[in-house]
Design a protein around this nucleic acid. Structure first.
Lengths: 300, 300
DNA sequence: AAAATGTTTTTTCCCGATAAAAGACATTAC
DNA sequence: GTAATGTCTTTTATCGGGAAAAAACATTTT
């Protein structure tokens, strides 16, 4: 089994959800664009849908015969990419107790533990190395640098530099730029969330990422935009692991975002700078306080 | 042939050069550290040296019998790592005429052209992607973003941000920090080079990199330090390709470095800032003027 | 003739296997 | 008893192969 068909399974599941909405499916190329897969995969999906009696398929005619049942879906865990599977396993280890800085990372062991080939693990580690948490010794093992206080400080230093610059660039964008519409949209989503924060606080992460990515894009600098991947990864896993005070934290952050948005809309550089700094300061604080004091780098 | 023995060959060549200097070789572990390889490789080297009559090897005794001849060395091209071979081929293509932005990169084709397996090419492309010149389409090909004016501007924007900050941090370092000794050393190397610039101008690149890396290290930020890899890569290949005005350019840069070093030694933030800005400005100018106007990004 | 479907070819993704290189353990020398 | 050498084991680097997915080409439909 050299390659899993998770692309097909995931697209199949997403296609099932489309069935609820229409009486017949569009053309193969159209479906391909919609699902983000090739026609080859679309045709596999259609074949199975025909076999399981979901649709009647005859050339251009793809009539929906019945609504999808839960058992029509492929199990969620079969739709993940190998990269996602490896990432999750790896991060679990990394954030678990005992993952001290200086520790060696063994490709073969990781591969066996996760149950995948070494190639995939190697490729993952290479991709992951840009996050600054691991480092390769030539012709030898990887070394864990550890999720330390120093790491958090270095990360936030760059983040602050980049975001202040992006925010300034954002505020200087012309009135007719499309970003102002996106910002309005995000603002109303924030207001909506703020009013229901008691129950929906866990939806903040996703909104947070979209908001900051919008701002970073205004820099028109690929290095700044790409750096947000590092931040997003850290926040994603870190907060998954550390849920303390989550509700309170997110409630505060939503308000800071709203103030930040107002400042951007005012287009007053001083106000933007102040609102941005304020939010970044509390974001940094949140990250720092959630790192156990014990986690210090060991001398190599 | 699943793996070439370039590590052995390269270490062997380097070990040959040691033979000139001594009458007998040190212990195996010591040689290993010296050459940066494991004892296993050291023992292979010693075996061959014995076979070819270079040394007499009996346990702890490794007596040099004769000086190495040119034919004792392995050919240079057999000592390169696969990664270096792939990088060179790839960069040649990238900087060659006709490498327009938006162009697809085909792993299989590259692998066949270079004569290596696809795995190595894939790994190279993943590592290379952090330079911001290529981008992956999921489950599909890589796309070349191109060595455009936009790329150069984005790169220099970050470089300037990072270096100004690093230079300021450098100047603020305590008197007794070891960096001041390194700086003195670099200063005298610069003076030496300046006095012989007419003939040694091509040695500037290497000095330039060491100087800037020293400054960036003062930031104590892994993201800043790592970013210099991007700059170094670009400068390395770009100037290999564009030799116009090289001598004049380097002569100017050496003088700017000397002024920059003097500013750092003065530890006056304003002077440091000014000297750093001046040098970065001319570095940016040099890079920009050497990019053909025609090389513009195509809309995706 | 434009756009769909049907068919074939190519490429990507991933595994298992193998030589090179590193690392660990055992033994010997000083 | 420390540090070297000798031997054995494990890991890394790389390839070839094969299924999944994409892409290209050919044919039909409207």
């Amino acid at each position: 089994m050299s390659k899993s068909n998770n692309v097909y399974k995931d697209a199949f599941n997403r296609c099932l959800r489309l069935l609820d909405e229409t009486k017949s499916l569009p053309s193969e190329p159209e479906l391909g664009t919609l699902l983000g897969v090739s026609r080859t995969t679309v045709r596999s999906i259609l074949s199975r849908m025909e076999e399981t009696g979901l649709i009647d398929w005859n050339k251009r005619n793809k009539t929906v015969l019945r609504a999808p049942k839960p058992e029509d879906f492929f199990p969620e865990e079969e739709t993940d990419t190998l990269a996602e599977i490896i990432e999750r396993s790896f991060m679990r280890r990394l954030l678990a107790e005992g993952a001290e800085a200086g520790m060696q990372i063994n490709e073969l062991e990781l591969a066996r533990e996760i149950g995948v080939g070494t190639t995939s693990v190697r490729e993952f580690l290479i991709r992951f190395s840009r996050f600054g948490l691991i480092e390769k010794r030539r012709n030898s093992h990887w070394v864990l640098k550890g999720f330390t206080r120093a790491f958090a400080l270095e990360l936030t230093e760059i983040r602050e530099m980049f975001e202040l610059r992006s925010a300034a660039a954002f505020a200087a964008l012309p009135e007719d730029s499309a970003v102002w519409i996106d910002l309005d949209q995000l603002e109303s989503e924030h207001r909506q969330l703020a009013s229901e924060i008691a129950t929906r606080f866990n939806e903040f992460s996703e909104l947070d990422e979209r908001f900051h990515r919008l701002i970073h894009r205004a820099s028109h600098n690929r290095f700044i935009v790409d750096f947000y991947d590092v931040i997003a990864m850290i926040f994603h896993y870190h907060y998954q692991w550390n849920k303390a005070e989550e509700r309170q934290r997110n409630a505060v952050a939503v308000q800071e975002h709203l103030a930040y948005i107002a400042a951007l809309k005012s287009r007053d550089p001083a106000k933007v700078d102040a609102a941005c700094r304020k939010h970044l300061k509390s974001a940094r604080q949140t990250l720092l306080t959630s790192i156990p004091e014990g986690r210090q780098a060991q001398p190599a």
